[in-house]
């Protein structure tokens, strides 16, 4: 059971039996469940899962229903990471004592959290788990806003985005702070593996997830998850939005091994201007007014600078 699941192409992948069920209460077109399905289907091993409070948790476990076909726990907003780390520590203790009922099984430990639970509220807990190097994976479903509670800004919300606590109007262009570089922070823990993924590049994603499962030690995954409700676009355009995010390099896909070996895993053939990514979303609508147009130029410069920085790091291997 412990060997890696073979996934050569999408047809082969489609023979997986899903362990996440429909009739959850996520919005139509929500990318959360696409990401969760891609992660759960990447392995045949048993799973020990947890989810922080957030859209994923409240929508998949509405009493008396659960959408999970694996051991899954919801505890607090901040401690999904430590819950799974505790389960992993217990598993290791029982393994050492030889008291496991099925010692040949090789369970995988995965914690899910939204960007609010990871970038803000659960930050020190995640940092602790990464520092102690538990054999677990932490997945951020990054929709850049507290979508579950009505769209308040989180520290993942990018500049210019209109959120309910940083609304755009006659005197403000919305969110003023730049997005926190969570990948950089987590890689600086020198954990064995950290990666940024997007659901539209399923092959890249499955490869990284399998690499993460094969890694001994803490793994951090940051997944972009377009939110149809708070980013304000039509539910059918979720994958189009994700394509724009990766192709405009707003969400570059890369991995960091041991905090120093740096690989860019996806280089778009045709780089899309950031303006197209912004124009597709209602939360950036006000940036196209004359007085705020300079912000679009700043966006492009920031994304270009970040891409240049990533390429320099890849080249220098630091």
């Amino acid at each position: 059971m412990s060997e890696m699941k073979k996934i050569k192409n999408l047809k082969e992948f489609s023979t997986s039996a899903d362990r996440f069920e429909g009739a959850n209460l996520l919005c139509p077109g929500c990318a959360h469940s696409i990401i969760v399905r891609e992660i759960l289907n990447a392995t045949n091993d048993d799973l020990v899962l947890s989810a922080s409070t957030g859209c994923l948790e409240v929508c998949t476990a509405v009493y008396p229903y659960t959408s999970w076909d694996a051991s899954w726990i919801h505890i607090g907003f901040e401690n999904s990471s430590t819950a799974v780390a505790g389960a992993e520590a217990m598993y290791n203790a029982l393994k050492t004592k030889g008291r496991l009922k099925q010692p040949d099984r090789n369970p995988k430990f995965v914690a899910f959290g939204g960007d609010g639970a990871s970038y803000d509220i659960g930050f020190q807990w995640i940092s602790g788990c990464m520092e102690r190097n538990h054999n677990m994976m932490y997945v951020v479903l990054d929709n850049e806003v507290y979508a579950n509670t009505g769209g308040q800004r989180s520290s993942s919300t990018p500049i210019g985005s209109s959120a309910t606590t940083s609304p755009a109007g006659s005197i403000s262009y919305g969110e003023k702070m730049n997005k926190k570089d969570m990948m950089g922070i987590m890689a600086a823990h020198h954990i064995p593996y950290a990666a940024q993924v997007a659901p539209n590049k399923w092959k890249d994603m499955v490869k990284k997830i399998q690499k993460g499962f094969a890694t001994e030690g803490a793994v951090f995954i940051n997944a972009v998850s377009p939110c149809t409700t708070e980013w304000k676009f039509d539910p059918k355009d979720t994958m189009m939005l994700t394509d724009l995010a990766t192709d405009s390099l707003v969400f570059p896909l890369y991995e960091v091994i041991d905090g120093k070996e740096f690989n860019i895993t996806y280089r778009p053939k045709n780089v899309v201007p950031v303006e197209e990514y912004l124009a597709a979303q209602g939360r950036f609508k006000h940036l196209f007014k004359d007085e705020y147009k300079y912000l679009i130029k700043e966006w492009q410069e920031r994304v270009d600078a970040n891409w240049a920085y990533l390429q320099r790091r890849e080249e220098a291997k630091v």
């Binding site: 999408l10 489609s14 069920e21 429909g22 009739a23 469940s33 696409i34 659901p199 539209n200």
Partner: peptide, 10 residues
């Protein structure tokens, strides 16, 4: 199988 992988509701 693009629809299978990208379906949010299984």
């Amino acid at each position: 199988q693009f629809c299978w992988i990208y379906c949010p509701d299984v």
